[in-house]
Design a protein around this nucleic acid. Structure first.
Lengths: 151, 151
DNA sequence: ATTACATCCTCTAGTAACTAGAGGTTCAAG
DNA sequence: CTTGAACCTCTAGTTACTAGAGGATGTAAT
């Protein structure tokens, strides 16, 4: 009873994103009308809302896939779900620690800039010499930097 | 005087990443020995350290490219550099606000779970119904979620 | 009935910042 | 002189989408 555009409007998930979720098997393939256009019902809508909300809380799509599978089996223990949620919480906490360190260092760097020429620019100096930093954001591998990127 | 492996060890940037930086023009093409292997000097090392440090502070590669270009012109005013740094700071602050909201909501959700069956799982309930959340992480577009991902 | 025009369809390719792997060459140590 | 580590190039994969081409369909007004 819902076109993809309507569903999009109701859930706040963009049309191409809905098609993408279908493509990767996160949403089941919906019915089509005679013209071949997708038609959705309220079940799809609930599922999509679930996905969106989980994404907003930073869960990766693979976790969401698992959460959906688990939630389809209502009599099981919810331990597995709890574990996923806690892992996500830990992930968020780790990123918060990192981001706070970055924030501090950026502020410090900017505060020290006297805004003269590039030659004396504190920002450039600090970027070029890690020794000028406080110790907090040291010893990061590119893996750490990368992990920080996952929503 | 430095092989790519040595340079990697000294800067903490992985070998394939160094080659990648060269490929996208962030690092200049180095000399080669007779066998065709890359050899680096201290200039490359400094430049790579600069890049690494800026990455650790969350600057995107495009900004780093610009910072490098600006730092090559030492008599210019450092306004442009300052602007980039401030933009990055704002970005980090925005992500901190978002992440704090997520953190709060995740904690709340997990705390409410009584760990029974999936049927009564609070985590699943909250994910399925945004109304059960506190208001803070509402009204997010996928664009917002996405922006959060840019280290 | 026709004409706009919005919305829909599929498909490919692009984004950021790398990482992994195949298949082959060169270097350094013993 | 051999062995094994380190190097080379190239392609493809990762995450979660977004953008665009080129065309079909749905709907509202004339």
């Amino acid at each position: 009873m819902l076109s993809i555009g309507k569903l999009s409007g109701l859930t706040g998930v963009k049309v191409p994103t809905i098609r993408y979720y279908e493509q990767i098997g996160l949403l089941p393939k919906p019915e089509r009308n005679e013209g071949g256009q997708r038609i959705y019902d309220n079940t799809s809508r609930e599922r999509l809302n679930f996905i969106r909300h989980a994404r907003e809380l930073g869960f990766p799509l693979d976790d969401i896939r698992e959460l959906l599978a688990l939630s389809d089996d209502p009599d099981q223990s919810c331990e597995a779900i709890d574990a996923l949620a806690k892992r996500q919480l830990a992930e968020v906490e780790h990123r918060l620690v990192r981001l706070n360190a970055l924030h501090k260092e950026l502020e410090r760097m900017i505060a020290q800039c006297t805004c003269g020429t590039v030659q004396t620019c504190r920002v450039i100096q600090v970027l070029g010499d890690h020794g000028l930093c406080e110790a907090e954001h040291q010893k990061m591998t590119s893996h750490d930097i990368e992990r920080e990127c996952l929503t």
